[in-house]
Design a protein around this nucleic acid. Structure first.
Lengths: 214, 214
DNA sequence: GTCTATATAATGATAGAC
DNA sequence: GTCTATCATTATATAGAC
């Protein structure tokens, strides 16, 4: 299907939405103007408002589009609840790169879409945790809800802070060929052995059991 | 010193800078106007520009101020390279809360300050890793640079995505009393045992050793 | 140093012709 | 559906009085 469409074949609505998606993802919502979107889509500024009502309406259309394409897709399941891995998974589909970009930008900014993405990743992680425990490849965390939220936050944070990780590893993007494998191994090493050899820090952080309180 | 100063005692410059710090941290740079800053500082909009040259100059002043107060401080060392732990550490100093807030907002937005904060946290982490390995409480990662960048990204990401973690744990902020202990235990558990019981995923991710390649 | 008043530019959104 | 022209607002920044 995507091999059957060229930019000129898309309706003005679709072109506007795609242009907004790219600009919102690259520059952020605030720094993007309706006129910029119009120019990139090759239409007038008035038409943008005519179709989407307002700039906010345009954002909503982008959110809906991303939700429809990615969030309800099987792709997010095969990501294992890890946003960086989803990015890698989608590297084979360059036409989806702007969508991933928009997703990460939404996470940064917070807001409605950020919450639903985060929840979706948590749901996937929860399911994979069940399967892993049943198969004996994962251990049951002491606080399941907290463990899931923490893991998803870690991997999602890695996507959001990807450029900073990359800068220290001699690249510009987390997905750079010289960067991602090193990140992936480091993350998995952490998730496998951990970093600490004993549990004294953990014991300190754990709440005092009731029978030992004064 | 801070117990010897009241808001009215501060110079207009300092009040403007503090007001900008709060607003930039809460709303972000883009959504904050010079007029908002002026109003909160109790001065005219013209004076803001007169003192700082431009809105961008005002941001630079905020960056410099935060760098001077936090980044070169011993507080960041006692954070263990973990931004959430630094936030906890600073909970005893409510007057520094806006500074932490600004720091997290800067990390989200990227830019110059984000890089220097990240590097500083990595430096602290590197030093603690040395000490931990020498003391036998930490194990040497296979890729030291990558491990450090990854760990710092994880904990920093937890601060940036704090509201999303909190929302799933029945709170609004990572530092909420009902939220932070659960996050801390989950994170330390991950750093101690890991989550995976065996290393088959890790082995898959590791590059093939040279002698085993075709 | 500080204010008021204003210049200048850009923004989101509207109106009406085609 | 699409455009051009324009409105009304708001933004940063400047000028000059005090």
């Amino acid at each position: 299907m995507s091999s059957m469409t060229r930019p000129g074949d898309l309706t003005p609505q679709a072109r506007i939405r795609n242009a907004a998606l790219e600009l919102f993802g690259d520059q952020g919502y605030d720094r993007t103007t309706v006129r910029q979107v119009a120019q990139r889509a090759g239409v007038s500024a008035g038409l943008v408002i005519h179709h989407f009502g307002s700039k906010e309406g345009l954002r909503q259309a982008c959110d809906d589009w991303v939700t429809a394409v990615i969030l309800d897709e099987k792709s997010i399941v095969s990501s294992g609840g890890s946003l960086p891995q989803l990015q890698v998974y989608l590297s084979d589909h360059p036409e989806l790169a702007p969508i991933m970009n928009y997703l990460v930008a939404s996470l940064k900014q917070g807001g409605e879409m950020a919450g639903s993405v985060f929840d979706r990743l948590c749901a996937v992680t929860s399911q994979l945790l069940d399967e892993g425990i049943a198969a004996g490849t994962m251990r049951e965390p002491s606080d399941r809800e907290a463990a899931i939220a923490t893991m998803v936050a870690f991997s999602t944070g890695a996507s959001v802070l990807g450029p900073l990780i990359a800068a220290r590893l001699g690249g510009t993007t987390l997905l750079d060929p010289g960067v991602y494998p090193r990140y992936a191994v480091a993350a998995l090493e952490l998730f496998t052995h951990g970093l600490l050899t004993d549990s004294h820090l953990l014991d300190q952080a754990r709440p005092v059991p009731p029978e030992r309180q004064a």
